[in-house]
């Protein structure tokens, strides 16, 4: 067998490595990340959500365009203008919570821990507090609740929920147990938000023994906000 010069052989193959190295550098890769199945799925999900976002925005544009057309095409006789403005006012009142609304949703009956001996260290653990109520309302809002009321008292963005001894004050009105929370929205989502494992409501029932019974309803009626509310300090920025 022919003897090879080791230094020459190693040198030649080092040159090969150098060529590979240079070509790799030439590719100008910022970061080499392996494409795994999970990363592909993540990207796909991201793309999907972006697509739905885009579709939503397109729908929004269509809505706005329609409204613009409506305004532009109304002849400016007094009657038409009034009806358009009234429609808009009604819509705004509905969104602001000054209208009685009806729709599918869930009804949650909440009451304090009945078994007084079950958790005897602190009686505070067994009763419903404002924090519990606020957390549950938050869960409902996350699940897409459009209108919420507690014992017939409409809860709006500026509603206060406060503990006041054995009762809870909502909108400045005292409400006692059992609390009946009514929420209009997708019943399945709303049910999940108060009954799925890991939710705040589940923790309340399992750990503190507070009664929470959600019922899915086809038609619920939520009354309008009965009080009067106006801004004294906040002014619109021009």
């Amino acid at each position: 067998m022919k003897e090879y010069n080791p230094k020459l052989t190693i040198g030649i193959f080092s040159a090969l490595v150098g060529i590979l190295f240079a070509s790799q550098v030439k590719m100008n890769i910022q970061m080499v990340t392996p494409v795994t199945i999970s990363s592909i799925q993540r990207l796909e999900l991201e793309a999907k959500s972006l697509k739905t976002d885009i579709d939503d925005l397109k729908l929004n544009i269509e809505d706005k365009q329609k409204y613009l057309d409506l305004i532009e095409n109304t002849d400016y006789s007094e009657k038409n203008i009034i009806s358009v403005l009234e429609d808009e006012r009604d819509k705004n009142m509905l969104l602001a919570g000054y209208k009685t609304v009806a729709g599918p949703g869930i009804e949650i009956v909440m009451f304090d821990n009945i078994n007084s001996d079950e958790l005897s260290f602190d009686f505070n653990d067994g009763i419903i507090h404002d924090v519990d109520m606020q957390n549950i309302l938050n869960d409902l809002r996350v699940a897409g609740a459009e209108a919420i009321s507690i014992n017939g008292e409409r809860v709006l963005s500026f509603s206060d929920i406060k503990c006041a001894g054995p009762v809870i004050r909502v909108n400045g009105r005292s409400l006692g147990t059992p609390f009946i929370i009514t929420a209009i929205g997708d019943p399945k989502l709303l049910m999940a938000s108060v009954s799925a494992p890991g939710t705040y409501a589940e923790m309340l029932t399992k750990v503190y023994g507070i009664g929470i019974q959600p019922y899915s309803k086809d038609k619920l009626i939520i009354p309008a906000y009965s009080g009067d509310f106006s801004y004294f300090y906040a002014k619109a920025v021009q």
């Binding site: 190693i10 040198g11 030649i12 490595v17 150098g18 240079a22």
Partner: peptide
């Protein structure tokens, strides 16, 4: 000699239109 080889290789790699 390995270092020299690598240097020569890098030079060749940059000069060649090999991608």
């Amino acid at each position: 000699y390995a270092l020299i080889g690598v240097l020569i290789g890098v030079l060749i790699g940059f000069l060649l239109p090999f991608t």
